[in-house]
Design a binder for these strands. Structure first.
Lengths: 224, 224
DNA sequence: CGCGAGCGTGAGGAAAGCGTGAGGATGCCG
DNA sequence: CGGCATCCTCACGCTTTCCTCACGCTCGCG
């Protein structure tokens, strides 16, 4: 998560940089509006932290300029507490407005709230594909060569679990616990049966599976 | 734009309702947490305005409950100014936190900022079509081969929910929560009945549905 | 070359889930 | 008060799914 800080107060920037870096953010900083715009264009930050009281270029103008081409959330940090200033900044395109002085944990929480909302829009790992099969984890739908494939609930849950860990080995215990809520390792007859049916529905040659692989003595693996 | 206000102060609710209605919002209100959850399930608000200090159910619990199934932005309005309260609410899933007393124009600006950001994510199609049936989600009207089809309220809400997620599997829990606001998984007699009636009205052959499909053991799916 | 362990797959019965007709309960409106 | 639309309950028969059982196959190993 990359963060652009635009503020002309070196001490505040220093404090922010240390705290934010400690919380896993990558931080870049600019001391005035013009530099902030240039840096945003170059570094593509995920979130912008923008001070309103910078020299040479009004904060609202900076917001307008940024909003001209980027959609990342903008949090305004300002000493002005009047509602007119807040309204102006928010309507210019800011997503949040925090007044100085502020508690660091509140700023961090607001950062989390914004990144939480913008994250799913950007990187939706909602579906995975292997061979001519696509698995849509949100719609709970499976298609093969464009045609919808019908799965029973147990088949689906089994495939879903494998698809959520593509490439990883999934042990039999894990699948049993996931599908039947039991830790019984006694008989694994179910697994063999349902894996067989999945392969019949999804593999070109069920006898020689290319993606739903067996790891003898361990479990199963979905390779994409 | 529909707004849900959850607050136990009748005077504040009244003031908010008047101001927000004057700015073009459709307003529904609930006096406590449980009612807010039920109303949210029923009314599909675009934004939720949530007071933290309500009786019977903690505001944070309400946020968790809402976040379990809906993604609309939540603005917390609270008299508590401590950063710990803010962090807790934001991390529970709230999108913004405004402290009382607040300026109405600031709240309006924050509403605009949130709706601006969530609008493109949520905006689905205004109407969808399958077979010889057209579902107009804005006008709440259904036509088949050009002729208007009359649906009862429950039938409509069921179809609407399916139509808003075309191709996706909709679980029975989801529909029950949507139509009856309950988490009862006990008996699903309603669903079977209303689906039967929908098919009679919309499918060429109700016995062999082509679009309103059953996924045994899971739920229903509308394929276009 | 025989053998046992692990795996794949077909068949079939039991159980759960589903569709639908009939009809009572409820609320609305003239 | 009576007609009407809607919601919901109940019961029955049918379909799908689940799971057991049995058998054949592959592969590593002595």
């Amino acid at each position: 998560m990359k963060l652009l800080i635009a503020d002309d107060d070196p001490q505040l920037v220093r404090a922010l940089r240390i705290t934010l870096a400690a919380h896993g953010y990558e931080v870049v900083a600019a001391p005035d509006g013009a530099a902030a715009i240039a840096l945003a264009a170059q570094a593509h930050p995920d979130i912008v932290l923008l001070d309103l009281g910078m020299p040479h270029l009004d904060g609202v103008q900076v917001i307008h300029a940024l909003r001209g081409w980027m959609t990342a959330p903008i949090i305004v940090v300002s000493g002005r507490t009047g509602s007119a200033d807040k309204v102006e900044a928010l309507d210019a395109g800011a997503d949040d407005y925090v007044t100085k002085p502020f508690q660091m944990d509140e700023l961090l929480a607001r950062l989390r709230a914004l990144s939480r909302r913008s994250a799913p829009a950007e990187s939706g790992e909602a579906s995975i594909a292997f061979g001519d099969v696509t698995v849509d984890l949100v719609a709970k739908a499976v298609s093969r060569a464009g045609a919808h494939v019908h799965l029973t609930p147990t088949e689906w849950r089994m495939l879903e679990h494998l698809a959520r860990h593509p490439g990883a080995l999934v042990t039999r215990q894990e699948l049993l616990r996931e599908l039947w809520g039991t830790d019984q390792v006694s008989d694994t007859g179910y697994l063999r049966l349902y894996m067989s049916q999945l392969r019949k529905k999804l593999e070109a040659d069920p006898a020689a599976p290319a993606h739903l692989l067996t790891e003898q003595g361990m479990g199963y693996r979905l390779v994409v």
